[in-house]
Design a protein around this nucleic acid. Structure first.
Lengths: 333, 333
DNA sequence: CTGAAAGCGCTAACAC
DNA sequence: GTGTTAGCGCTTTCAG
């Protein structure tokens, strides 16, 4: 960590002269200039970012983005949105908690010591107290959970509505025995989706049948298989997310049932890459994740600037219909 | 941006007293302590990270990670590896170039002004001069390209070998008309894979037939369709990447040909999520991306510390065989 | 208990 | 052309 002072001493000039040379400002004799440049290189000088920005009174705002798993397309998209909103003049410090709750809390709690000016927490199961605590130091954006605190804004997806639409769509496509492969209900999001499903079923006077399955393909497969084995009547499945749907799809295929002919399936999240690549392509409830990321960053940036604006921002999902639920003229199989 | 001075003035004490209170050091009368705390909260005081760390002589090293597209699983995995290696004491500033070469160069060039202590460039088609330029200020890690510069380390995957293995595998599984749906050959990686393919074909005295297809599903589909229409003999396809392979797979299915019975297919990259979800599951050449990310960060951190160590690190791919290329006892269809 | 003063590394007037 | 000086905002001796 060479410093200006060192290269100044080595060349018998003052720090300010060195500074001038290195920044190409003011006029310095060609001879000294060369020597200074040379010595600077030899010493491997790199200016201290902090000192420089402090002296120049310029500050780059940095936002901390905490995600549980950057490989998950949902969070990758979220990140993309945040990156977009931050553009050229704000930096984003990415922190992956690797789904380790302990690490996550640590990251959140320490964020301000890392010099971030605000944080976005991309996980709906954060500890409320922690959010409140941190928000007393720096602004915070959280997802899918409502807070009423000065320094935090909530980005919310209308999960109820998404689930409602998906279920209704299945029913209107001729399904009357629509089941729900849901998440674990201690997660708010899962609960909302369950309720949306139930609402649609009731609206059509149908009996809701829901299972607390989980979030991955294996679980979807396992439950669907069990359900089919049990002989239960099923002609439509609304799943917690795309992975569960894919698992269910696999099971259905194994039973030589046709999708959507015998059983129609709808997922949630709409990871396009995934949905479009499988066969049949999977209908899914689309979350405008990228946009959500973008908005969350924008709102955070505003908060950092001191403009307290929105405290809650609600997004609407939309159903993307693909073959897995589209019976068209075939009607019910 | 409240400062210590302000809250000091407001409470008629000195900055140092305020500092002590806010940091819980030294002893200050309960009365003042309370008042200071109160005013600090009112003013929404947040310590200046730069000033603080400078005064404390502590420095958190930060690495800049530049990727062309965080949504692409390859880069998401890379990022994950970097995050892992950085652990608790280094920060990673993520910069997505959105595949905009111009933006990317800007990001790379400006990185050092953002206070990063080193950068990892997750893109093999960087401008050499730029890399050299930047590396004269801060250490740089690049992928799939060999440099011989003091301040840059290259992380390389043996693409030739991967392609060779994939092709050989197809041949040994009974394919004799193996074609290659390759990338565009101005990209070094694509060229290497092409050469690996050719080498394997020659080894078995087979005639290589390669196409410069591109990198996405649409291209794979389009080319494969055209090839099948032309009536050309094909019983094996080695693709540039998984997406191209998926496109090709679609085309093959449309022609009512069986995979792997009539045509066996192998992809590259091994995006597991993708490969395992389609049917039949896709064989693919696996890159240890996450590990590569981890190693690149570790090496960078070493360079930042001033320990010049490795200058080149080569990883070996490995073929993951799934159904799309596994003919087992069936032999050639 | 409290404050003055020095210093972290750098920039930017402003003299000489 | 070049050096001196005064900060940037904070922490930390060290007197009082």
């Amino acid at each position: 960590m060479a410093k200006l002072k060192q290269i100044a001493d080595a060349t018998n000039v003052s720090v300010s002269t060195v500074s001038k040379v290195l920044n190409g400002k003011g006029r310095v004799s060609e001879k000294k200039r060369r020597e200074i440049l040379k010595v600077a290189k030899e010493l491997g000088y790199t200016p201290d970012f902090r000192a420089r920005t402090m002296a120049k009174k310029t500050k780059i705002t940095t936002v901390g983005l905490i995600v549980p798993d950057i490989i998950n397309p949902f969070f990758a998209r979220l990140t993309r949105g945040v990156e977009k909103a931050c553009g050229e003049d704000s930096l984003v410090i990415l922190m992956d908690s690797f789904r380790d709750l302990h690490r996550e809390e640590k990251l959140i709690r320490n964020a301000r010591f890392f010099g971030v000016d605000g944080i976005i927490i991309g996980n709906s199961r954060v500890n409320d107290d922690l959010v409140l605590e941190v928000s007393s130091y720096i602004p915070v954006v959280v997802f899918d959970k409502d807070y009423d605190h000065e320094n935090v804004v909530s980005i919310i997806l209308d999960n109820f509505y998404g689930a409602y639409c998906a279920t209704k769509h299945l029913i209107e496509n001729g399904c009357s025995n629509v089941i729900h492969l849901g998440g674990t209900y201690e997660l708010y999001v899962s609960l909302q989706r369950l309720e949306g499903y139930q609402a649609a079923m009731k609206e059509f006077s149908l009996q809701p049948v829901a299972y607390a399955v989980g979030y991955d393909e294996g679980k979807g497969y396992e439950y669907m298989k069990r359900i089919l084995l049990s002989g239960q009547k099923v002609d439509g499945v609304f799943c917690m997310n795309d992975l569960v749907a894919i698992g269910a799809l696999k099971a259905v295929k194994e039973f030589s049932l046709r999708v959507p002919g015998d059983i129609a399936i709808v997922g949630f999240d709409d990871d396009e890459q995934l949905c479009e690549v499988i066969s049949p392509p999977l209908s899914s409830v689309h979350q405008p994740v990228e946009e959500m990321g973008e908005v969350s960053a924008k709102l955070l940036l505003e908060l950092i600037k001191g403009n307290k604006k929105v405290r809650r921002y609600i997004f609407s999902p939309r159903l993307v219909v693909r073959q897995s639920s589209l019976r068209g003229k075939e009607g019910t199989a």
